[in-house]
Design a protein around this nucleic acid. Structure first.
Lengths: 323, 323
DNA sequence: CTGAAAGCGCTTACAG
DNA sequence: CTGAAAGCGCTTACAG
């Protein structure tokens, strides 16, 4: 059997309440008593039973991270930093790959409501009855739930505008946009808006495909795009997986990159995983993760948090745009 | 306040023990009583408090997955399936990226010992005092802890032998091996053994670099390799990241692949992430994950498990070997 | 078949 | 400053 607070109390010759106070570093314990207790803890190698603590305090010190799939570089990296940052606050993170299944998300919601986790980071794409979420400690990335779910996002609009102008400055005249559209209200939609605004500004006709793409459908969408707009000389790709597929497809069609076709992707190449070096808008994933965890912890503690946090992206010129 | 078992009991006009029995589907509850309780549960929308349950049963229904970094395709994919499979058994998984820090692993060990998780899957590279592990529910991948930690692995020896013969059949005469060596006893070392055996068999002098590689050091190790063995015409690369770095380096050195240099990697290209298509030995990650979770659950339940599970890899010819 | 009671290991008013 | 006691929401012998 594990050693309990009772054992410590007996060993130290004090009451269990006193031991509890020492453990929790509360004031109002005499120095001599405290010392005795500390020694007992040491001698018995006591460590607090987490479950009992949680039951009493009605908290779990666990947060859930909900991503569509963890086996995607962006989410994997996000998960890495979320876990790290959560650890600093004393939270463990439960990983849930919802895999585009609303059921899994509902399950997590249930867990939150039933206090099996203290809060959750939603980075997914399904809708939920807003009322369920209202006073749950939930935060999000990019997603604008509408309710008071705070979220972290990047400067989607500005970054996209810059990226497209970058191609224009390098001679692109027929610029397309291909994107994987989120299922729900998301800041990601700002990218399309930025694109359309630049097109309007330059009087260029838009060549736009922005639709909901199921995992695996990318190839089809890309070839549809090329069928529709076979004259593009510059394309902005929204989404990492899509950008990889697009790049490959363009090469297969024998298009010279960047001479005949320039490409910029939002969410770039992940150096660790792919060997190509696309020009891209890089999101500060680590910072996004740390911020979002910070928000969540505040929400759990009942503190006031800012509803929207915008982080700066970095433009990374690569080999898919001209010098 | 949440509705508790007490509320249900009162509503149904029975004792709490009876409610508990119904919840847990125990026999020995009269059909009429059971119905009443079920109705009460329904009416009150009751759901069991997990923390109280766990405290009572002294289990958490949580398992830990310990990987060096989650932002690596192999581990990300593994995590995905581990989470999925664990869910089927009713377990949540806590993700821990030990990032090669022994401290984090020790922390998890503490959690296991103190029953904050029911068990753990170790896919990491540090040593721990074997005695700590002896009767903890721990399982592993590839790693041979020595103690009775069951593990799942692949047919490292045979697969490597095949891969190297494959290059020999295609004319390779000066075959090298470059590997990222695990810090601890691991089945991965079988790859080196297989390589050396084939070399001996064919009377070829080995060109071997197999050393512990810290994250980020790959580039240096690769250029050391080429300095030492600049005449290779076939290389077996052990490790995904290393294979990507190696491939890139070879291209940069202007070597024609596969004409002048053939490459096979253990753990191949992950199609989702990289656009190149290396010839590789593909590990059945999904199956590995499901098996390892199955083992762990059995261990947690105190059932007997087989100490070693060997899964078959798949050889995937790609563009880095000759036809 | 069912209920009352003890107890899992903690925290937290309540007295003193 | 400190202890005895109640209680968090369950499960599980123990009676009946």
């Amino acid at each position: 059997m594990e050693v309990t607070i009772k054992d410590v109390a007996r060993y130290a010759g004090v009451g269990v309440g006193t031991v509890s106070r020492v453990i929790n570093n509360e004031k109002g314990v005499g120095p001599k008593t405290r010392k005795k207790v500390l020694e007992a803890i040491e001698a018995l190698n006591y460590s607090r039973n987490n479950m009992a603590f949680c039951l009493r305090k009605n908290e779990t010190r666990i947060i859930a991270l909900l991503v569509p799939v963890i086996s995607h570089p962006f989410f994997a990296k996000l998960a890495y930093y979320v876990e790290d940052e959560a650890g600093r606050y004393g939270y463990s993170v439960i990983l849930v790959s919802s895999q585009q299944k609303a059921a899994k998300e509902t399950e997590i919601l249930r867990k939150i409501v039933h206090k099996e986790v203290d809060g959750a980071v939603f980075v997914t794409h399904h809708m939920h009855e807003e009322e369920n979420l209202r006073d749950c400690p939930i935060v999000s990335i990019d997603r604008t739930f509408g309710a008071d779910i705070p979220y972290v996002t990047t400067d989607n609009y500005d970054a996209t505008k810059n990226a497209i102008r970058y191609m224009i400055e390098r001679g692109a005249k027929k610029i397309g946009f291909i994107g994987s559209k989120p299922l729900v209200a998301s800041e990601v939609m700002e990218r399309e808006r930025a694109y359309l605004d630049v097109m309007a500004e330059y009087g260029m006709p838009p060549r736009l495909v922005n639709k909901v793409i199921q995992h695996g459908e990318e190839t089809v969408v890309v070839s549809d795009f090329f069928e529709k707009y076979d004259d593009v000389d510059g394309v902005f790709v929204s989404g990492y997986t899509l950008s990889q597929v697009f790049h490959e497809a363009a090469q297969e069609r024998g298009m010279k990159i960047p001479e005949e076709l320039q490409i910029v992707s939002y969410d770039g190449t992940f150096k660790q995983w792919s060997t190509n070096n696309m020009t891209c808008v890089e999101q500060p994933i680590e910072e996004m993760a740390r911020q979002v965890v910070g928000l969540l912890v505040k929400k759990i503690r009942g503190e006031e948090v800012s509803p929207k946090t915008v982080l700066k992206t970095k433009f990374l010129p690569g080999t898919t745009t001209k010098q």
